[in-house]
Design a protein around this nucleic acid. Structure first.
Lengths: 125, 125
DNA sequence: CCCTATGTTCAACGTTTATTGAACTATCAA
DNA sequence: TTGATAGTTCAATAAACGTTGAACATAGGG
């Protein structure tokens, strides 16, 4: 279980997969929460998303987000730290991520975005 | 078969449905082609997309595009004229449609966007 | 009126999807 | 070593999805 999971290269990031990933409310919420956190520390642990769903369902969504290139997972001890691949996304599809994020922000009341989401100071390991 | 099909109001347009719609390569191609056509006449007939798939499969995708608010269908005789709901989209999710379209344009070689798509002058009925 | 062109609707199908709980692995701390 | 913590993996399930072809509806032209 220790090997760091697979991530696509920047060039392998595909538009339909990215849009499909973002079309799921839970994954959109994960991405949104990661984007919020960027202002503070850029990384969050899996358990920081526990308000959105159960552990095993989150693991499923994390895998999809990794597979499509939206986020990167760093293994540190028993934790996984996730962060947005903002630069790669911006290079591949300029403006797309921000357009989606601001659209989500605009509809925050309709989406399950920020259940109990206050910013968290993470101690990088 | 004559009644004009159902369209959501501007306010009913939801982000996850829009992203999901755009995540299908065929639907993305339809939207892309409609956007191209906008410069000329803003409307296209169903049969203008026949390079993308069969009639009944296209009807299925058209229905999804209507249901999520991405396009509007106008019935005129035996034809249906479709156009992008650009203003509604822009009002709901500013910048989103253009970001997706320019991302698609950037990846035009990887996507089934423009099989035999030259601009067509349509005589509005 | 019949014939054709344009699209939709329906049933069928195989595939993919999201979700669950249980079992498992790995790491850390006592 | 024992126990607790953090997450993944697997199998099972139900629902949704994309695609097909056949049948249908509608309008226009001879």
């Amino acid at each position: 279980m220790s090997r760091t999971p697979h991530h696509p290269t920047r060039d392998q990031i595909e538009l339909p997969m990215v849009l499909d990933c973002l079309s799921d409310p839970i994954r959109l919420a994960i991405v949104y929460q990661l984007a919020q956190q960027e202002r503070v520390s850029s990384e969050l642990r899996c358990s920081d998303f526990s308000a959105l769903s159960g552990k095993s369902n989150l693991a499923y969504h994390f895998a999809k987000l990794r597979d499509c290139g939206l986020m990167r997972t760093r293994v540190a001890g028993t934790n996984r730290f996730m962060r947005l691949r903002r630069e790669d996304l911006e290079a591949r599809f300029p403006g797309l991520l921000d357009a989606v994020l601001s659209s989500a922000a605009k509809d925050a009341d309709r989406l399950p975005l920020v259940s109990g989401c206050e910013l968290v100071e993470v101690d990088r390991k």
